[in-house]
Design a protein around this nucleic acid. Structure first.
Lengths: 202, 202
DNA sequence: CCCTTATATGGACTTATCGTCCATATACAT
DNA sequence: ATGTATATGGACGATAAGTCCATATAAGGG
């Protein structure tokens, strides 16, 4: 974000530039476009122009627009991914879900990741990247935490934790992708855990 | 229905054709492309060619590629949408979820709807159509059925049914859109209802 | 310090698709 | 039969994805 005033002054014209510098410029430009206009506003040509790089260079490092966007997204929100394990599974799950709720509703990140997921549906390479770098790691963290909770006797041992993960995280993406008019609030996050732990039968 | 090349027996050349006939040809061509190659394979030009219609005509009736695809999708799977109310909410929910599980995993419909949802993330018009014609009606049916179940004393009355709907249907779309490698089985559908009704605490 | 090599650059080019426009042909209604 | 609504082929301009080439220059070894 604070790439030392890389507006246009240091235009060096043609020729080689330091690889790390160019890479950073491209990622910053991508992140800016993503947060500003979402996935729809990202084109390789606009990124190239904004970064002061050439399309050729971009294609040298990223195979597709989707891969670039995914990289740019993490470059912008690379945090809020930790999963605390305090020993109280309900508290830990709730905390994690509330953090996600805030990320998805208080920042443009929600629309950005929605656009990336959308794009992944028709771009197998991006789908693969997304799964390996985003979805799968997050899911694994949650399942492992719940497995430890099972060992501590806080969760039944006869339930399928993968399904539980879908019932806790699925609702966020359900609202994000299919019901953009429904809010994703802290209360929503809290209710998810409580419903599932306690059950909804009288 | 035939995914042949541009079938041209009734080629009438230029000039007006019966509106209903052209409309049906276009929808059939769209459905064929969708089921065959998914959303990525649908372009207005290919639909026009396959249907023996002109792009101009397509644009006259459908505002965008997304709207056309959505229409073609329903033209192809217009069934399996009913929601039975037998008086046993667990059985009714399970039946509904199992029907959806079969639709999403045993037919190409899963990839098709995934593609449409994906496209909707960068196409506001399509997002609106999708919500009004697909997502919202289905959700409303489920929530109403659960409300009746609350009145019958089969569900607690202090829970938010909207959240419950997200915890039952969200998991399907979570797997469909973010974890295409995970299966969507009958057992998965059954487990969702059981987990939520009974709770997962020991 | 110079020279070789790796690589970024501008810009042109090809291909694909969208969406629009027009003059013309023909089904449908009066 | 006659007039009107509407589908048709085809062309056009715009946007964007990717690719390619000759050239300029940073990095790094001698």
């Amino acid at each position: 974000m604070e790439a030392h005033e890389e507006r246009k002054p240091p235009r060096r014209g043609r020729g080689r530039r330091p690889a790390a510098e160019v890479r950073a410029d491209i990622l910053a430009a991508t992140a800016a476009l993503l947060l500003d206009e979402g996935m729809g506003g990202v084109t390789i040509e606009r990124v190239a122009e904004l970064a002061g790089a050439s399309k050729t260079t971009i294609y040298k490092w990223w195979p597709s627009k989707g891969a670039l966007a995914l990289d740019g997204y993490f470059h912008a929100v690379e945090s809020a991914l930790a999963f605390e394990d305090t020993g109280d599974i309900e508290a830990d799950l709730t905390a994690q879900l509330r953090a996600l709720a805030r990320l998805l509703s208080d920042t443009p990140a929600g629309r950005v990741i929605a656009g990336i997921i959308g794009q992944a549906q028709t771009d197998p390479d991006l789908a693969d990247e997304l799964l390996r770098h985003y979805s799968r790691p997050r899911r694994d963290l949650a399942v492992e935490a719940m497995r430890r909770a099972q060992a501590r006797g806080q969760l039944r041992t006869d339930i399928d934790l993968d399904t539980v993960a879908d019932q806790l995280w699925g609702p966020f993406y359900h609202r994000l992708l299919l019901f953009p008019d429904l809010p994703i609030t802290d209360e929503f996050a809290t209710t998810l855990t409580r419903n599932l732990l306690t059950g909804i039968r009288p």
